[in-house]
């Protein structure tokens, strides 16, 4: 076993509502690395994240998911979260009555204090929203900042970020980029960096702010390409996913 492999997915197949969405997906993220996942709508990107996180609706029928060398398929969502997996949802639900500051404090566990929550909220430009109910009445960009604020409080070793740039205006993109870089400990030297990320991006804008080592293209539930993320993005921009489809054949 290679202990440097933080996340190791092998030959994964996932069903939703009896229909197989992912087929034979394999990928590995080493400690300290950031990878990005490209793919058109409906290709299975979010399904992969939900399966890693362990949501029951996303049923793994074949293959394995190892996290820090441990098979996590039998673990509940919260057990996976406590092992060090964090997920920022693309469209998180509103939870009425639960305030953002409460959930942030919960994420911080023993480290929580009013000052610590405030410090993180200042970074995420979320101070004025702390008393707001979770995701209630937030704009697209505010939702993304709220998700990243919660993840910063959680400090997961592996951050799964589902389209962190969607609905974010240009002014806020740099802030989103800063928050992700902090979450992934990008200020640390590559050598010895522990925090890793897997980022779903539809547009690739996030790559202007966050460096990634590897990119994948997911098409119809299969990884059809793996390589330099900027090179993949360039190809998609110029020729669209049709070019990737040719590769898959």
């Amino acid at each position: 076993m290679d202990t440097e492999n933080l996340l190791e997915i092998k030959e994964l197949a996932v069903e939703v509502g009896g229909k197989e969405i992912l087929h034979h997906v394999s990928l590995t993220v080493k400690a300290g690395e950031t990878h990005v996942l490209f793919g058109p709508n409906g290709s299975g990107k979010t399904t992969l994240f939900m399966a890693i996180m362990g949501l029951p609706k996303y049923r793994v029928t074949r293959g394995s998911i190892l996290f820090k060398g441990r098979d996590i398929l039998g673990l509940s969502i919260d057990e996976r979260a406590r092992l060090g997996i964090g997920l920022a949802l693309q469209k998180p639900p509103v939870v009425r009555g639960v305030k953002i500051k409460d959930i942030v404090a919960t994420c911080m566990k023993g480290r929580a204090s009013e000052e610590a929550v405030m410090r993180l909220a200042e970074k995420a430009n979320m101070v004025e929203f702390l008393d707001r109910e979770v995701n209630y009445g937030l704009s697209g960009g505010e939702t993304k900042r709220s998700e990243l604020l919660q993840l910063l409080a959680q400090e997961p070793e592996l951050a799964l970020l589902d389209e962190p740039e969607s609905g974010v205006d240009l002014v806020n993109m740099a802030l989103i980029g800063d928050l992700i870089n902090e979450l992934l400990h990008k200020e640390h030297p590559i050598r010895g960096r522990k925090h890793s990320g897997l980022i779903i991006t539809h547009t690739g804008h996030i790559l202007e702010y966050v460096r990634a080592r590897t990119g994948y293209v997911l098409l119809d539930g299969r990884i059809v390409c793996e390589g330099d993320p900027l090179e993949i993005l360039e190809t998609i921009k110029r020729k669209g996913y049709e070019e990737c489809r040719k590769c898959a054949m």
């Binding site: 509940s76 639900p93 994420c107």
Partner: peptide, 11 residues
């Protein structure tokens, strides 16, 4: 969905 969301945060 709300229960799962909070479980994702470790509850």
């Amino acid at each position: 969905e709300e229960i799962e969301y909070l479980m994702i945060r470790g509850l």
